[in-house]
Amino acid sequence: MPKLIKNGTTEAFHWQILRDSDAVSATDLNSGQYLIPLNDWLAAPTPSRNVGVWLAIDTQPEELTKALKNLETIAIEFGSFMDGRGFSLAHILREDCDFSGELQAAGGFMQDQLFYLKRCGFNAFVVPDDADTDSMLVSLGDFSDSYQAACDEPRPLFRRR
């Protein structure tokens, strides 16, 4: 089972990702914890502990609306670690949609992006079962300060110098 790095510790990742509507309608969403496509959730946007939204990496920024702030959990699934769109999507969720819940990075991101992911608003990281999470926690803290503003520090260094 994959693991979830969160708040400086590691726990089991209990969520199941349902990537298409057919899977959503075939599933009893009360039977576990599910991440479902944005449109399926928007069809019935009720707040729920056990249902979150799954965002593909090619999600268009205009699809992200303020309605998302009512969610408790959103996951952005990276394809390749070279595809950096997830960094901007996360930023938009935090800054423009006022989403304050758990933002999970899932899929093909890599360990050495953890610090940047954290800065862009991710606060939970789905990693493989055999991942060296101690080493990952070190990567999460690669830097103790930054020049520019981001979701973890709204003031750029020049306003704090």
């Binding site: 960094f87 940047y116 800065r119 020049y147 520019q148």
Partner: peptide, 9 residues
């Protein structure tokens, strides 16, 4: 420098 959002353009 180390801009978190634009390191994988």
């Amino acid at each position: 420098t180390f801009h978190p959002e634009y390191a994988f353009l």
